[in-house]
Design a protein around this nucleic acid. Sequence first.
DNA 1: CGTTTCATTTACGTCAACGTAAGCTTATCT
DNA 2: AGATAAGCTTACGTTGACGTAAATGAAACG
Lengths: 140, 140
Amino acid sequence: MYDAIGDLMDPETMTIRQMCDAFDVTPRTLRFYESKELLFPIRDGQKRLFTRRDRARLKLILRGKRFGFSLEEIRQLLELYHVGDQQETQLKRTLEVAQLRLEDLEQRREELDAAIADMRAQMGLVREMLSDVAARDASS
Amino acid sequence: MYDAIGDLMDPETMTIRQMCDAFDVTPRTLRFYESKELLFPIRDGQKRLFTRRDRARLKLILRGKRFGFSLEEIRQLLELYHVGDQQETQLKRTLEVAQLRLEDLEQRREELDAAIADMRAQMGLVREMLSDVAARDASS
DNA sequence: CGTTTCATTTACGTCAACGTAAGCTTATCT
DNA sequence: AGATAAGCTTACGTTGACGTAAATGAAACG
């Protein structure tokens, strides 16, 4: 029996292949992330079933990778997103770590802005050279 | 003879050790970057002398690394900053590549903003939990 | 002049992040 | 039932980005 909503749209769980298609990664990568405790798929016999939580985490993992974080850094960062009913001291600690992470991200944004500005300036120079070349060609 | 300006402030060239101190990298790293054609120090006999150009490039290299670019990607990016007196078609090509790079950077900026927003939201949740815990403790 | 100091080359080692191949179950198709 | 597909485990291989050690040379110091 075919169930478009349950099977395709937003299934409770997804097989490893569905995950690979959805996130453009290989099975090896997902198993590797599980072995590193970044993902925690449940099991149906032998087979892995990835939950919404796994998908949310994978999204953050891939985002973190694009920013050049190591998997270990990402793992620690993911812990900040997994706050159960913890002790007050633990929650405060989490908040402190999150604050540091946030400052790190904001620092990166500044650098990124600088990089963008530099790139724009450089492109301006190249455009100047281009118009110079055009002027030279026109007068020859 | 000691010359503070020539030796320390902004010397024409710097030794490998001066570079290491200035940029917090190891000699191995600088030699490695040279072998990968990211830097082109001149030679005084055997010894490498790093020019202003090398320093500018190293700055860009380290920045690129913080954004998770591979050295090969960085090398290609650096080529955009080395525009000699080239042909018009070559300059246009450079500009096109730079444009793509720029769009990539701007895309990353958006993702980074999203990450920062997510982190802030998450911290808000943790703060809520903290105040809940405080309220519970106060009423017990 | 001997000895640290700084630098060089050559080469093997390492660690993260997967790739890839072999061999084995389990489910599905015909 | 036999074959095909999807998934699993185990384990060795690979690539990028350096680390680290050994042997050598030139320069500066006391």
